[in-house]
Simulated scan of single mutants.
Amino acid sequence: MNESEFLAGYDPRAFQPMAVTADVVALTIRDGRLHVLLVRRGEPPYRGAWALPGGFVRDDDLQEAAARELAEETNLFPHDLDRVHLEQLGTYGKPGRDPRMRVVTVAYLAFAPWLPDPKAGSDADAALWTPLTATRELAFDHAKILDDGLERARSKLEYTPLATSFVGEEFTISELRAVYEVVWGEPLHAGNFHRKVLSVPGFVESTGMTTERGGPRGGPRARLYRKGDAKRLHPALLRPSREDEIRN
């Protein structure tokens, strides 16, 4: 049976129009604070409203579409994308989420220690890095997608050594703790964090060296560490709030 016989009796007008988009929750740390990339829409619907970067999927696969949208808004070159942690976050297809037609979006999380200053893409008239503490009201269901992306990023730090990408090749435990505090959005007890990090096999390894100077109060010089070979953290470094949930 040929293709025309398979399609016999098929009338595309009988089906609701539908499209697929790829949206990106892009997170980075700037000036000691967690930032998200937002764009101001230059076209309807929601013209003038802030939203996550994204767009319709063209003749590329989903992850390629997400990488393309991220590159368009951040001046990233293809080789720069190798430094970005990019993973699929979830699928959002609630009817009415887009007033144009039935639109299903596949959202991605992009998380990197450094991303350049953004530039507005073809369908946006502005783009900026916004601190998570100052996010604006977002178009579509992007507030929900952003919340999910933030939770995913926080969870990644619990179960993977991703935080070591946000410090230098050699770092102190205090510098690593600062990354966790920024992403988790809560202070951590220095001694407890230090103990937990060193108790996870393969998370970090000592360089045998120390910092050139002591602490700000004249304390001893801090030991320097480098990233270990662990791909997953076991036991996990749970957030204090998550530890309380499990305990209760």
Rank of each mutant, 00 (worst) to 15 (best):
L224V: 15
V179R: 04
D123Q: 12
A178T: 14
P187K: 13
K156M: 10
A178P: 06
L150S: 05
L176E: 02
A120T: 02
L188Y: 11
H189D: 14
G218F: 09
T135Y: 04
L176A: 03
W114P: 02
A230V: 09
T133K: 11
E205W: 06
G121R: 01
H189E: 14
M209D: 14
P116F: 01
K196G: 04
R239T: 02
G121M: 00
A126I: 03
L198A: 11
L115I: 14
S155G: 04
D125E: 09
K227C: 10
G191Q: 11
K231E: 08
F203D: 08
R177V: 10
G228A: 07
S174Y: 15
L138M: 14
R195Q: 14
W184G: 03
L132P: 08
I145D: 00
G121Y: 00
E181N: 12
T130I: 04
P113N: 08
A143Y: 02
R232W: 10
V200G: 08
L237A: 05
L188D: 05
S165H: 10
D141K: 02
E205M: 08
A190W: 07
A112H: 04
R239A: 09
V179E: 06
E137Y: 07
Y180Q: 10
F193I: 07
P235Q: 10
F203P: 02
R221S: 13
E186H: 08
T172F: 13
E175H: 14
H142Y: 02
E205I: 09
A112G: 03
L138I: 02
W184I: 12
V167C: 05
D147Q: 08
D147M: 11
P131N: 11
F171S: 01
Y159V: 15
R177M: 15
T160E: 06
W129A: 03
K119H: 10
T135D: 03
A230T: 05
A120Q: 06
A163S: 14
S122P: 06
